[in-house]
Design a protein around this nucleic acid. Structure first.
Lengths: 351, 351
DNA sequence: TTGTACGCGTTATCAA
DNA sequence: TTGATAACGCGTACAA
């Protein structure tokens, strides 16, 4: 497909032409040109037409730097994320962008790969007024730093967050979600539930572990440290861990991984050991990403409504940018998606 | 992890403080403050120290808009992509970012979801001097528009591109890569090779189809339109297509899909029909993304060296931004990654 | 070595 | 309804 003729003009913007050039050629003042560009009512229609024609003729495009400098805002927001290479993050970003556009913002993304310098470069854009606000999906900065940043700038946390910083956030209740995931396994009759988590700085990892323990406790199951291990969210990391689990004398009858990729890795390892899923070991993952239904069997998982999260985060940021003081945090509903990795074929399972 | 104390100052930037405020408090002129910030040699060390202290004391951060307006450059580049939710794109972007940082740029990403308005908004950032240059990974604009854009602005195409526009690009040779993938299947003894492509505006889709035909022709195999279909790159789209293929009387003995996700979908459909892979039907995908080794069997695929592509694209853009005229296009080497989806166990296969 | 003065491109204020 | 002028925050040529 291609743009129509009205739109092709859009691309003809030529470097170096200023509002002064337009004013001179049109025989008006720069102020008037500016008024036309900003749809100021008090400009004679004929003048406006004439100016518009001159603008097109010259292929003039207003310089954002000058405009933003004067207006003291850029109408641009930045989303900072560690990476965008997973379904969850990219969907959240889609929600942010779609909402941002409706609200009149340009949404830009900066990825950090958990690198301090890259993170610094992006925060710089905020500090130096290159963008009006920022949605932080992931960061290495400390609690104090987050609080300090939020005191002076317009930021919102999304998905991942640091609690009690005064900086608003949008997230699911990770503890509750993990609790429900494990409860589901227990209600299937499983008693030896392994846990593959991640040892990092993120609140979510910590909360999910607490949720796992909550469920065990509620049902009077012992916490067996032999059935707990840490991966790195990735497919391969779960393979080694799972191989150890299944060699143990006290083999688990269920496994909860805090990422779908790890759940898929665990399943791969089990299948190679000819363990039946879910009959021998039932598996639950997290995030409802592509891999959870590409894996065989399809994986029961926790869904986070990513698009809605992005939407809410952008709305919160917009409110901040419009000077609303009250900082509400938003907890988004999660959902357990039941699939074959916990469902015995033939309806033996109560779910 | 968290920043050390030197770095925490970094976050203390407070809105509204200007170079004038610093100058006043330090008892010097704004020019001197500017010189200190820009590491101008001709400033007395003691003065510089004093100014630096004042800067820290006030938590002053230079306003990028003012600076960029004055310098007529932003040292920021934008990567425009349709989406970032696949391994390939996100790896390319990683290559761009890592290289961009080394060269002193801030790299921003804008996604379009193939929406005209979103694309327009991002191109706007370039036209209006908000960024110095742009790497285009995917676009809806026409050949003429691309040429026109490239005539006045600093742009490079990466991965996907429109040929003969005068705008430089970095890409693999898609036609050659597809040719080799199909040749591999033919050399395994396969004669009825199905093709799942995508019907869209992209040059790569077209080129891969030509490569498929090249291989058939070279080996004297007939082009059977019954074995050719179009999906949308996605897992699910290939399932329906494959179900039709395998119901045909003249069932294929191999399948080449131009995305790993479609190859995985095809495999899923075949397995449910109890077709053996690769014995009955061998499968090749494209891109060497996660799904190609998560799928069972692992999928033989075409690898694109995405990080290197990003690196080269950023280097090309840097050259453009530094005024180098000569516009070289870069073809990156691809590689066929052999996996179980085309490899008969036990070494019967010659590869 | 430092300060003054101007300009980057735009918008806002005020007066006409 | 329009124009002249100042201001946004910064960097730099020039003068001191």
């Amino acid at each position: 497909m291609c743009y129509n003729h009205n739109v092709i003009d859009f691309f003809l913007g030529v470097s170096g032409i200023t509002i002064q050039d337009v004013a001179k050629l049109a025989g008006v003042s720069a102020a008037t040109v500016s008024r036309v560009l900003n749809n100021d009512k008090k400009v004679r229609p004929e003048t406006a037409d004439h100016v518009m024609n001159t603008i097109k003729q010259l292929g003039y495009k207003p310089n954002h730097l000058g405009r933003n400098l004067r207006k003291k805002q850029t109408k641009t927001v930045l989303v900072m994320a560690s990476t965008v290479s997973n379904t969850l993050t990219s969907k959240v970003i889609r929600g942010i962008e779609e909402t941002g556009i409706k609200l009149g913002y340009t949404v830009l993304i900066g990825t950090t790969n958990d690198d301090e310098n890259r993170e610094k470069a992006h925060i710089d854009l905020l500090l130096h007024k290159f963008v009006d606000g920022m949605i932080i999906m992931n960061t290495l900065i400390s609690k104090d730093e987050m609080a300090e940043l939020g005191r002076h700038h317009n930021i919102i946390q999304c998905c991942e967050y640091i609690p009690n910083t005064g900086v608003g956030f949008v997230s699911i209740n990770n503890r509750r979600a993990a609790y429900e995931a494990v409860k589901h396994l227990i209600e299937l009759g499983r008693r030896k539930i392994a846990y593959i988590g991640v040892k990092n700085h993120l609140y979510s990892s910590n909360q999910r572990y607490l949720g796992y323990k909550d469920a065990l406790k509620e049902f009077g199951l012992p916490l067996n440290l032999n059935l707990i291990a840490d991966g790195n969210y990735g497919f391969r990391s779960a393979i080694g861990i799972t191989n150890k689990f299944i060699l143990k004398e006290n083999r688990p009858d269920a496994l909860f991984a805090i990422s779908d990729r790890m759940a898929a890795g665990a399943i791969r390892a089990m299948k190679e050991a000819e363990i039946k899923i879910p009959e021998d070991i039932a598996v639950v993952g997290f995030d409802n990403t592509d891999i959870s239904y590409v894996s065989e069997p399809r994986i029961t998982t926790v869904s986070q409504s990513p698009i809605q999260m992005g939407e809410k985060a952008m709305q919160l940021l917009d409110k901040k940018l419009n000077g609303e003081q009250e900082q509400k945090n938003i907890i988004i509903k999660h959902e357990i998606i039941l699939r074959e990795s916990t469902k015995i074929k033939g309806g033996l399972c109560s779910c």
